[in-house]
Design a binder for these strands. Sequence first.
DNA 1: CGAATTTTTGATTTATCTCAACAACCGTGG
DNA 2: CCACGGTTGTTGAGATAAATCAAAAATTCG
Lengths: 242, 242
Amino acid sequence: MAIVATVSTGTFLTPLCMSCSVRSASVCSAIKDQDVPRLAGIATVMDVAVGKLLIEAGEQALYFFNVSSGAAKLYRLLPDGRRHIIGFVRSGDFLGLAAGEDYAFSAEALTPLKVCRFTRKKLYDLLSDFPAMERRLLQAASNELAAAQDQMLLLGRKTARERVASFLRSEAAHTPSAQGHSWALLMTRGDMADYLGLTIETVSRTMTALRKCGVIAISTASDVSIEDTAALESIADGTLLN
Amino acid sequence: MAIVATVSTGTFLTPLCMSCSVRSASVCSAIKDQDVPRLAGIATVMDVAVGKLLIEAGEQALYFFNVSSGAAKLYRLLPDGRRHIIGFVRSGDFLGLAAGEDYAFSAEALTPLKVCRFTRKKLYDLLSDFPAMERRLLQAASNELAAAQDQMLLLGRKTARERVASFLRSEAAHTPSAQGHSWALLMTRGDMADYLGLTIETVSRTMTALRKCGVIAISTASDVSIEDTAALESIADGTLLN
DNA sequence: CGAATTTTTGATTTATCTCAACAACCGTGG
DNA sequence: CCACGGTTGTTGAGATAAATCAAAAATTCG
């Protein structure tokens, strides 16, 4: 099911780590240059094609991942097929902290995806020698936890309009090229719906409504821009009522 | 606002730590007996009365807490007063990992509450000498993250009936005395509603419906018992449709 | 005991969902 | 390069789960 192409494994990945474009922004930044070979020694670099699974719910949770490039969606299913997307990961994000014995969620590539895979046990062993990395992981978990609480507030108490506005604000914040310009949404209306606890139709209608009142512009379905940042903010935060 | 009674601070808390009833079940279990004085040295024991705030949203996040006894609800507010309860903490739970610079949530005692308070900075300093405790914190954060994902699925995709059933199952699991018996819910219908993304009326009606079909029994509003565990399970997991 | 709060129940409204049809877009292969 | 089938997105009309409004009942607590 989870078809992936393993590129390579082991210490000879050292040069890849040294030149890794997300190293400084990821948990790996806690490892000093001279120790990188130890990190590279337990890493496997993998490529995942769009639509393929990186993680499948129910599998034994053997690995952690660090995203080098691309993006993925994480989702859970109810027995009758209802789906909920619990989050997205992108360049620099660390993946797998939330898992227990088995993965509770699946992870599917939204774009061509490149990840570094670490065996859980080996990474834990490594952490004993690199407390700075463990501190970074704790920091990452704290940030994720805070984000999860934001999302719970959104799902529990925000209107469709507020949810979509919050989502667009967050996406723009995660997309450097979005500052003042249009950008390409990585996800379909269906993904947005399953992330925001809505239906495709409601997401579509709400996007259209935000466009019609001048808050955003939509050229293609996936190519959007924020036209009125202040208005989007106040809708997202629930300051505006109408 | 957050009126609390500080009982005592410092190394002479050591005997309190040594005899602490939740030590073995909390992150403090990572500290060996001979090192307990160092832990006690940075702790402050506090009592919080029912309805009082332990943490107020917006305050600088200076502290971590470990709950010795009692329970509290954690909540966030939208500007217009909509409230969402992001979770509950009980004996043994560690509190404050999710915070950034400031607390994003408030914490209010549901019962008379006893907590150990640690200054963030001091605890972080201590962690350098006790990697086992840092590992425990990472573990705690992972568990919270997994729970948050469960809750997101609940809020995003479950029906009122499924939400209430999930809540009752989880409460029973957190309450040793609930196994096969009735127990006292710590929270009001309003708290349940704000936790489950529903209204008071919907929670009340749903509880009544679950009682009428024999899944639960309700003697007092707060005194409930599970009469048909299998049915509750399948409702909670979305296996049952009706 | 009695005021205040919480809970339950009923009647009605509404935001969002569902069902349905059509339009736009996308990748593929002729 | 364009036609074509499949997917994704939009829009409309109607249905519905849950919200809102309202009032009575039960419970709590000073």
